[in-house]
Design a protein around this nucleic acid. Structure first.
Length: 347
DNA sequence: AATGCGGGGGT
DNA sequence: ACCCCAGCATT
């Protein structure tokens, strides 16, 4: 297929030099693929180096505490990736004697490994003939073949997986898969691709029909929800504050935060001050309240905007076991909390 | 099939 | 304000 030949020869000339391209070690490739899920190379690169340094092998990772893995993952987002990474490492060590699964089907059994990642590892490390379909592949194929089926539907997912599988270079799945992704990232990029220099510009359906800007088609996402977060930054006379672990289902699972009071709307000082008197932590406790940031800090996640206030709660003695100020930075926290800790300087 | 999950960067 | 990113798990 001409498409396949052009993509692979483009890749041999234009590929970036990246650390995970110097190895076929499945541990390294797996780590890189998990880090790069929904994450650009530039953002993930420092984490890849940090993880390999802290956990050079799957055995090191399996022996770690989840809290240490999350701390190292801090700032990268989608924290279930870190929790699943750690769980999968323990599975590989405890159930598979440390030997990585070596085919698509068995790779899928690892937590956090879905169709894309199993295909990537199987092809790159074991040369299995299974096509990857990531955001880049959707875009390249939708444009080149002029496909307007929405990519985020069951029909679209199946269609593109099948199409990708017909195009893969069976003699070199490892390079072909990486080639089409790199082509999407650098040449057939989302915004204003330079089609003048594209090696496929004489046969690209989207270019011929002036559809480059409208492909691929993606069904619109839901609207962003607004939430109002009030963090209680306790300050005790013996130099401690309170950190709580987030449990349950929502965002930032297993990360730490200051005690949180969520309100239906932006909290007013007087109203909130009264409300606090009924909070469990402050029921039988006198406290002095001050507001750290008058204007809410807006922290934007994909599907929620968090309007956030940090309330400084001075107390004589903490109602629960606290954390001494110098230890606060050892906890894995969301970026929103980490930024506050950096700026506030506990002392 | 629909929803939730982070954070950074670009336009 | 909206889109994108080497997606996955849950319901």
């Amino acid at each position: 297929m001409q498409f396949t030949k052009t993509i692979t020869s483009w890749y041999s000339v234009n590929k970036r030099s990246l650390p995970w391209r110097d190895t076929k070690n499945p541990y390294n490739i797996w780590l890189s693929e998990i880090i790069l899920q929904q994450t650009q190379v530039k953002q993930g690169l420092p984490y890849y180096y940090a993880f390999l340094k802290a956990f050079p092998s799957v055995f090191h990772l399996a022996e770690a505490q989840e809290s240490d893995v999350l701390k190292l993952w801090q700032g990268l987002g989608y924290y279930s990736r870190a929790r699943n990474l750690h769980a999968a490492a323990k599975y590989v060590v405890n159930d598979l004697n440390g030997t990585f699964p070596s085919n698509y089907k068995d790779l899928l059994k690892l937590k956090g490994v879905g169709d894309y990642t199993a295909s990537a590892i199987a092809s790159i490390c074991f040369n299995e003939n299974t096509a990857v379909v990531d955001g880049n592949v959707y875009r390249v194929l939708a444009r080149y073949f002029g496909v307007n089926i929405p990519i985020n539907t069951t029909k679209g997912v199946k269609y593109f997986k099948t199409l990708a599988q017909t195009l893969i270079d069976a003699k070199n799945p490892a390079d072909y898969n990486q080639a089409i992704m790199e082509f999407g990232a650098i040449q057939c990029k989302p915004q204003s691709p330079n089609c003048n220099i594209c090696p496929l510009n004489t046969s690209c359906e989207a270019l011929a029909k002036n559809m480059v800007k409208t492909l691929p088609v993606k069904l619109k996402a839901n609207k962003v929800k607004k939430r109002y977060f009030n963090f209680l930054v306790f300050i005790s006379e013996d130099g401690k504050t309170i950190l709580e672990k987030r449990t349950g289902k929502g965002i930032w699972q297993n990360l730490y935060q200051f005690p949180l009071v969520e309100t239906k709307q932006d909290a007013d000082f007087d109203v909130f001050s009264e409300q606090l008197k009924t909070e469990t932590l402050l029921k039988k406790q006198s406290f002095q309240l001050s507001l750290y940031n008058k204007d809410s800090i807006v922290h934007k996640l994909s599907h929620q905007h968090l309007y956030t206030k940090f309330w400084i709660v001075n107390v004589n003695k903490l109602p629960v076991k606290g954390v001494v100020f110098k230890d606060v930075k050892a906890y894995a926290v969301p970026v929103l909390i980490g930024n506050f800790i950096e700026a506030f300087q506990f002392k």
